[in-house]
Design a protein around this nucleic acid. Sequence first.
DNA 1: CGGGAGCTTGAGGAGGATCAAATCATGTGG
DNA 2: CCACATGATTTGATCCTCCTCAAGCTCCCG
Lengths: 240, 240
Amino acid sequence: MQTRGSLTGMKDNDIAAAWNGLATCEKCGIRSLVLFADLTSEDFSFIHLPIEDIWLPAGTSLYQPGQNSSALFTVREGLLKLEQYLPDGAQRIVSLLRPGDVAGLEAIVAPIYEHAAIALQPTKVCRIPKEVVTRLSPKLHHQLMKKWHDAIQRSHECTRELSTGSARQRVARLFVLLAPGSGDLCRLFGREDVGALLGITTQTASRTVAEFKRARLVREVGPNIFHRDLPRLEQIAAEG
Amino acid sequence: MQTRGSLTGMKDNDIAAAWNGLATCEKCGIRSLVLFADLTSEDFSFIHLPIEDIWLPAGTSLYQPGQNSSALFTVREGLLKLEQYLPDGAQRIVSLLRPGDVAGLEAIVAPIYEHAAIALQPTKVCRIPKEVVTRLSPKLHHQLMKKWHDAIQRSHECTRELSTGSARQRVARLFVLLAPGSGDLCRLFGREDVGALLGITTQTASRTVAEFKRARLVREVGPNIFHRDLPRLEQIAAEG
DNA sequence: CGGGAGCTTGAGGAGGATCAAATCATGTGG
DNA sequence: CCACATGATTTGATCCTCCTCAAGCTCCCG
């Protein structure tokens, strides 16, 4: 179990520097995916608080555990990790959030955040103040349920697919899970995070990815950009 | 990765045989913990569908994945496992539900159940028809959010505490998690389930529990009833 | 008494952890 | 522009944990 070096001195979230402008929710391109899917244009007029559009470079944290939960965040592009800490201080990634998912849902029922939410890739999110959700609560009821449901599915997915079986299988399943639908290309992240996600060491993560490259299961076409041989990866994911 | 023998021929749920009578929710002893915490006695008059009180012997399934989701279940006593299946057909326990938790929350947003919910110990649940929840939806809003939140915390707990670290640590953390507040006594379950929960083999589960007994970290005072040395278990859980 | 299921234990080997070092990428200051 | 520091990745060597295969064991039930 390792402790993380790169986290040192990053206890505060650093979203302030990444502000990108106010969002125009009504014209949102992924509106059908998000919390506001059911709202009418009349409803939008009741939102008097700014919905911010935030761009997060990889490694940026959206919030830290224990911090006051002031907002929810809809993931628009990219990939977020939710991590928690073990008794011995080591970290463990307990969930991955992809576009359409919501980070910080616990804001609705808890005064503080329970994870660190950190971008694994360049990521775009919408910051929705807690009060907006409170005010629109009845209207959002159904969408909120769906988002909670998504959150649980992500979490169970992490246990089922990424924390079970051999290191080979876990890495293969990770490659399969990454950005499905975007062809055979996907973007990976640091080996330390791969380890914390799969429950293996950084070295084993690196070794296994390197082995996959040599076996031509994946091909690195750019820095952490991989071309995948999905059929073969899926076979490894399923058996041995 | 092992497949389960004892599941064979148990695809259907067997709650029909376990019916126990209608519940009187207003007088429920754990009312503050459950979904109906916020209801007034007037609200109860709107419930025209029966809330059943069900007793589940250990090993009984409440529902199976793919089955029509007709109800939610509040856990009143005992312990439930939620399990899913891996690509290769092996099973993995993705969450444990304890008293106050709700099984089958996905019924609210999905037409079918996504897990098998099976009693690990003799367990008592309340069966709440989906329509009751739909009808009382606005009233239950806040409690539902809390229940979703609990469900996610359970799931993250399983990843963080029970699927991370050495087998020794995982078993120690399991003993610590089991029925906290009930003194130093707790009830364990079959070694196969311990394995599926911790992501280790049945044999390693058995070996480790046996080793704990020899080291007097736990003492078996009855069939799968253990007396725990919590301080020492917590120490193992935290370090090595 | 015999059979079955679950639990325990043993021996051996494979896979992953650990410790350590080399390589590579990036950025900084001279 | 180069020398150097820093951090991430890769690789190597060794050890230990845990998986695998297999055999007993206990308990319960017909």
